[in-house]
Computed example of a mutant assay.
Amino acid sequence: MERKEIEEKVREFLIDDLEIEEDKIAPAAKLKDDLGIDSLDFVDIVVIVEKKFGFKIKPEEMAGITTLEEFCDYIQSKVG
């Protein structure tokens, strides 16, 4: 899967499923501070990523991820 496709799918579920405003979504956006993603949203993200990308997120692997770009890097490393 290409990076552009990953970014588009992530953007799509952030807007549609988590109701994040489109203008807030940028590679450098911080997941918690800028996008307002909290622990309940994270549970949704785990389910969505499993459905859209076909792998399970391990919480310990997500520990150091703070920006949207790092999140997309993580997904890309899994679906490569």
Rank of each mutant, 00 (worst) to 15 (best):
F55Q: 10
P59G: 12
I57M: 13
A63R: 15
V43F: 00
I45R: 00
G54Q: 00
I48G: 01
K56Y: 03
P59E: 07
V47C: 06
E70F: 11
P59T: 10
G54K: 05
E60T: 15
V43M: 14
T66I: 12
L68G: 04
V49K: 08
F55C: 08
I45Y: 01
V47P: 03
G54R: 06
K58C: 12
V46D: 02
K52V: 08
E60W: 09
M62V: 13
E69C: 07
F71C: 09
K58Q: 12
E50T: 03
V49P: 02
F53S: 03
P59Q: 06
V47K: 13
E50D: 14
T66S: 15
E60R: 15
E69H: 12
V43L: 12
M62K: 04
C72M: 12
L68S: 08
D44M: 12
L68F: 05
V43Q: 06
F55M: 10
L68M: 13
V46N: 10
D44L: 09
E70H: 04
F71A: 03
P59N: 08
I45E: 04
E69V: 07
G64V: 09
P59M: 15
A63F: 09
V47A: 14
E50Q: 14
K58I: 14
M62G: 09
G64D: 15
E61G: 13
K51N: 08
K51G: 05
K51W: 03
G64F: 08
E61A: 11
E60G: 04
D44C: 10
E50C: 02
E70C: 02
G54P: 05
G54M: 05
I65D: 05
K58V: 12
K56P: 10
I57P: 03
K56A: 10
M62Q: 06
V43E: 07
C72Q: 07
F42V: 08
E70Y: 04
A63Y: 13
L68H: 02
M62P: 02
V49R: 02
V46R: 07
I65W: 00
K51C: 00
F53A: 03
F42M: 08
T67S: 11
F53E: 01
T66Y: 11
G64Y: 07
K58N: 11
A63P: 03
G54E: 01
I57S: 00
E50L: 07
P59A: 11
K51S: 10
E50K: 15
D44A: 14
E60Q: 15
C72L: 01
V46Q: 03
K56C: 06
F55I: 05
I48S: 02
E69D: 14
K56G: 05
M62R: 01
E61H: 11
M62I: 07
V49W: 05
L68N: 02
G64C: 07
F55R: 06
D44V: 08
